[in-house]
Computed example of a mutant assay.
Amino acid sequence: MKREKVGVFRFDFPERKDLSSPVLDEEYGKRLDRLQRVLSIVKEKVDDNQSITLMGMSLGADLIMDLINTLSYKVSIILIGSVIFEEIHIPAFIESVSLIYGSEDYISLEEEVTMESLIKPETYGVDSLNNIEWGKDPALVILKGLGHSLDVNQLEYDDPVKALSDLILRRELRESKCKEI
């Protein structure tokens, strides 16, 4: 993102041993605590006139959603690959909320996955938007040719770094981000 002139504080969590099973409550709590500590350090180093955007992918997005109600200052949030199944409340001081999905990030809510049970991101993305209770309109962005972690899955694809940088810098995204499947 440096090429787009976006400053980034990046930190990683310890790698999970078994990605196929749900994260344990204890591990989730440790991750949430670490995120809170890192964010307090970032907040000390950033001027009040600079904006902070919290960007999380999948489990990281869940952590952000659990954290935002504990904040007392303006931030923007970008949630990548996060499906919101239940109604959530976003505090009014949150500046922007963006849900980002790859166009090839299909999900299934069935135990046995079949082609018929697959749900496209345009469908579950809108459902997720409808579960956000907030005084503003969140953004839904579907990036062409990308998967769950915005990995390239097609020959033609949107540049995820440019798209995310545009969101962070509040530049307009092209209207061609969504495609029919």
Rank of each mutant, 00 (worst) to 15 (best):
K2E: 12
K2V: 11
R3W: 09
K5D: 12
K5Y: 11
V8N: 10
F9E: 04
R10I: 03
P14Y: 07
K17N: 12
D18E: 14
D18N: 10
L19G: 09
L24W: 01
L32A: 10
L32R: 07
R34I: 04
L39A: 05
E44S: 13
E44R: 13
V46P: 04
V46G: 01
D48Y: 09
N49S: 14
N49V: 06
Q50D: 14
S51Q: 13
S51E: 13
G60Y: 08
G60F: 01
G60A: 01
M65C: 15
D66K: 12
T70P: 05
T70S: 15
L71G: 01
S72I: 03
S72F: 06
V75H: 01
I78N: 00
E86P: 01
H89I: 13
P91T: 13
P91D: 14
I94Y: 09
E95D: 13
E95P: 08
S96D: 09
V97K: 02
I100N: 07
G102R: 05
S103C: 04
S103M: 03
E111A: 09
E111K: 06
E111C: 03
V113P: 05
V113D: 10
M115W: 00
M115E: 15
E116A: 15
L118E: 08
I119S: 04
P121F: 03
L129K: 07
L129D: 03
E133S: 11
W134K: 02
V141S: 00
V141L: 10
L143N: 03
G147L: 02
S149L: 02
L150I: 10
D151I: 01
D151P: 00
Q154Y: 02
E156N: 14
D158V: 00
P160S: 04
V161R: 06
K162F: 02
A163L: 04
S165D: 04
D166Q: 15
L169W: 03
R170G: 08
L173G: 08
R174V: 11
E175P: 15
